[in-house]
């Protein structure tokens, strides 16, 4: 078995989820309370509102080895700070363009909206995004480091 193949078999995506404390983070709590299964590849970062999300946070995560990043905020119209989630979506869309410019798949960054009561939806998002990143494979930035 070649070293490359060994790494490919062992590879699991590393995903960073920036979660708003008013919705997605509470939904993650609920998913836990409900004993819902979702991939352990997702690491949650608590933010006070997705309006706090900045492009540089996602870029730093990707520089440090994240294969995918998503931002999870309140349902549109329900932001505790009125339009933090709308602003976050614009930043995510901006970053998709920037990633494309440097030859990364724009699908490695995504914005999701859910409410605090949607524990099952949180688990579903975590599963779907993990599947997406697994299909995309390791981050292009990571290939050099791994092999």
């Amino acid at each position: 078995m070649t070293a490359e193949l060994a790494v490919n078999i062992a590879w699991e995506p590393k995903i960073i989820a920036f979660c708003c404390q008013y919705c997605a983070y509470s939904a993650a709590d609920m998913a836990g309370s409900m004993r819902l299964q979702y991939p352990t590849d997702v690491e949650i970062v608590l933010i006070p509102c997705t309006g706090r999300f900045d492009v540089i946070l996602a870029l730093r995560a990707m520089e440090k080895g994240a294969d995918g990043v998503y931002v999870a905020g309140c349902l549109e119209g329900n932001c505790h700070f009125l339009d933090g989630n709308i602003r976050a979506r614009k930043r995510v869309n901006f970053l998709k363009g920037e990633l494309k410019n440097i030859g990364f798949e724009p699908e490695r960054i995504e914005m999701f909206n859910l409410s605090a009561s949607q524990g099952p939806r949180f688990a579903e998002i975590a599963r779907d995004f993990t599947n997406r990143i697994t299909e995309l494979g390791p981050s292009p930035a990571k290939k050099v480091r791994n092999f």
């Binding site: 540089i56 520089e63 920037e98 440097i102 990364f104 930035a141 050099v144 480091r145």
Partner: peptide
Amino acid sequence: TKEVEVLASLLRLDSSKNDSP
């Protein structure tokens, strides 16, 4: 400062695909 951080990060990520970052 913010735009400098973003551009520097993008250039690092872009070059990290190559053999010599």
